[in-house]
Amino acid sequence: MSYNIMIVDDSRSMRKVIRKVLDLSGFQIGEYVEAGNGQEALDLLENHWIDVVLSDIHMPVMDGFGFIRALRDNQSWSDLPVVFITTESNEDRLQEAMELGARGYIRKPFQPEEIRSLLCQIMGEADGVTRTISDEGCDF
């Protein structure tokens, strides 16, 4: 089974790094969809089926909080898994993100393993199975 991944970050470099981490992690990716901020991501969601969103928090136009609130307010996307990859360190703000429905967060700078293991868990839950991860990647 392949997954469609949306990466939302105003840094093109960071979007590229995240793609590279996923490419090297053994995930079967159907499509990558990239957006530079929350509003752009909402617009792209109209025309793309997405399985998991990896999003920054600090972005111009619409930040990660505005984005996840908009997702939760829309019946079509209310269950879409969102993981924040962020420089945010304020525990209250990160807790707020979780209360808004984020499935997890990863702080920058990150180790590739952190993305791999969190995505493996989320994708496994979506499929109703427990995925394990090894050096070769997730057991898809």
Binding site: S11, S13, H58, T87, E88, S89, R107, K108, P109
Partner: peptide
């Protein structure tokens, strides 16, 4: 910019 962002956050 990303370097500044990450160092600033850290």
């Amino acid at each position: 910019k990303e370097f500044a962002n990450m160092v600033g956050g850290n």
